[in-house]
């Protein structure tokens, strides 16, 4: 889905920098990054190891404090030289969904509980949480595996459950760290299609960190991160140009 020009970006990063260490040992992991991701958009973030992809993801996920710049999520400025939100945990819980390379499902909870736990943490009662979790599993077509423990799931199934968990609290922003790295081409395509479906149907902004060339054609826009600097890739991989054109 193409992003609407009139809506503000769900992820709006301006002039963001992040350094580690001081003096001669100082490392500039991110340098003056500007990035906007809109509702309904699936954006890829590429780059070699050590280029700052994970650092950027951690900053957007409110896990890592930037050194300078401005970060706004879902229309709310959360960082502007300092954190402006007191409860970053609650912000993550309500607004951001995370998807991991190895799904990171909790091994001691079954599939249904893995999804419901996020809702219960957010304060939902057991009944409503299970009901919503069941709906999500149906939506992602893994409902038949609801009583199974994560160790019994295939890679593709586990990643679908992880997506269901990420969607549990209806977040507007979904951050995915190498979600297809452990999957073959077919399953990787299915996962990316699901993310595109989520973005389109739920109006979420999806940012995917990846090295996986086989999914490049699934992105609306791709950015390349090298030495802490971001470059927009305006090439054949970019499916939708309208956002880039607007920029």
């Amino acid at each position: 889905m193409a992003a609407s020009i009139t809506t503000p970006p769900l992820v709006d990063i301006q002039n963001l920098s992040k350094s580690f260490g001081q003096g001669d040992g100082r490392v500039d992991a991110l340098k003056h990054i500007d990035l906007q991701v809109y509702a309904g958009q699936v954006v890829g973030l590429l780059g070699p190891s050590g280029s700052g992809k994970s650092t950027l993801l951690n900053v957007i996920g409110c896990i890592l404090e930037p050194s300078s710049g401005r970060v706004a999520l879902d229309g709310q400025v959360v960082y502007d030289g300092r954190w402006l939100q007191k409860d970053l945990r609650r912000l993550r819980l309500d607004r951001i969904g995370f998807i991991f390379q190895f799904h990171n499902l909790l091994p001691f909870l079954n599939v249904l509980e893995n999804v419901a736990v996020v809702l219960e943490i957010a304060g939902a009662g057991t009944g409503p949480a299970r009901q919503r979790a069941l709906e999500l599993l149906q939506y992602l077509q893994v409902e038949h595996r609801r009583e199974v423990m994560p160790s019994s799931l295939s890679g593709g199934e586990a990643q679908r459950v992880a997506i269901a968990r990420a969607l549990a609290n209806r977040p507007r922003i979904i951050l995915a760290d190498e979600p297809t790295a452990a999957l073959d081409s077919e399953r990787a395509g299915v996962v990316m299609d699901l993310l595109r479906k989520v973005a389109a149907e739920q109006g979420a902004a999806v940012l995917v960190v990846t090295h996986d060339e086989k999914i490049f054609d699934r992105f609306d826009q791709m950015f390349y991160l090298r030495d802490g600097m971001l470059a927009d890739i305006d090439g054949p991989h970019t499916r939708s140009k309208d956002v880039a054109e607007r920029r």
Partner: peptide
């Protein structure tokens, strides 16, 4: 460690 980190990342409070 990984499970606790995941719980924290998805927004679980310290009390949990």
């Amino acid at each position: 460690v990984r499970e606790i980190a995941t719980l924290k990342l998805i927004g679980a409070p310290d009390a949990t």
